[in-house]
């Protein structure tokens, strides 16, 4: 790829109306890629867990400027919102002169800060279809209470019918090169293991040591925050 010349090769997309706005659709929501975290926080129709997520991004100054699209395309493994898109089965609408296509969140992040878009594509919007019957949960464990980069970030979605979980989605950030789903834990939840499903965490994630935390801490915390969530909704 040719390196852009920052003195001239700049298109300022800030303020492009087609890229912003949070709108209800017949099936859910279209969140424009340039929606700021402040706008997400103010969009009270969105699921509360997503609003909580927005509130944990940096602090006010960052939330006024940081965007949903920026978080997704930057693709940092520590990106606060990424697990939420995975558990919401979000679709990313990307556009180029060749047209528009949608990439499921599960296929978007392909490696460390790599994604499935090609060079001439731009993320336009995120589409989500939250179900009011689902329990949606967000938990960020960071370095402090604000202005914090996550050490472990959890997104979870649970559908319960007749007291039994019939759908379970768990995703985590900050523990691998990309945000990951937790298939073993999900299966164990559906198999009726209840909160003990969290004990399968080590089969799903192999966190690394880095400057902000340790692998051992990440594994422990991942297990404990999932267990806490499951205990709340499925009992101990």
């Amino acid at each position: 790829m040719v390196k852009p010349n920052l003195l001239k090769d700049i298109i300022n997309i800030w303020g492009c109306t087609g890229l912003s706005g949070i709108d209800s659709t017949e099936y859910g929501f279209r969140i424009g890629a340039l929606s700021t975290w402040t706008e997400v926080r103010q969009a009270t129709a969105l699921p509360p867990a997503l609003i909580e997520c927005a509130a944990t991004v940096g602090a006010q100054q960052i939330q006024n400027r940081g965007t949903v699209g920026g978080n997704i395309v930057n693709g940092s493994p520590a990106g606060d919102s990424l697990p939420m898109w995975l558990v919401l089965d979000a679709e990313f609408e990307v556009a180029s002169t060749r047209g528009v296509r949608r990439i499921p969140a599960s296929e978007f992040w392909t490696g460390y800060r790599k994604n499935a878009m090609v060079d001439d594509e731009l993320l336009v919007a995120v589409h989500i279809q939250p179900k009011s019957t689902d329990i949606l949960h967000y938990r960020k464990v960071g370095t402090r209470m604000a202005q914090s980069i996550s050490k472990v970030v959890l997104g979870a979605r649970l559908r319960i019918a007749d007291g039994r979980p019939i759908e379970a989605r768990f995703a985590m950030g900050s523990i691998a090169a990309t945000p990951v789903r937790l298939p073993t834990v999900e299966a164990a939840v559906l198999a009726g293991e209840g909160a003990d499903a969290a004990t399968h965490m080590a089969q799903d994630i192999t966190p690394l040591d880095d400057i902000r935390s340790t692998s051992g801490y990440r594994l422990n915390v991942a297990t404990r925050v999932v267990r806490s969530f499951l205990e709340q909704y499925l009992g101990a």
Partner: peptide, 10 residues
């Protein structure tokens, strides 16, 4: 207690 990162806690 100000709750960091949303969610529930013990």
């Amino acid at each position: 207690a100000i709750h960091p990162g949303g969610g529930v806690g013990r």
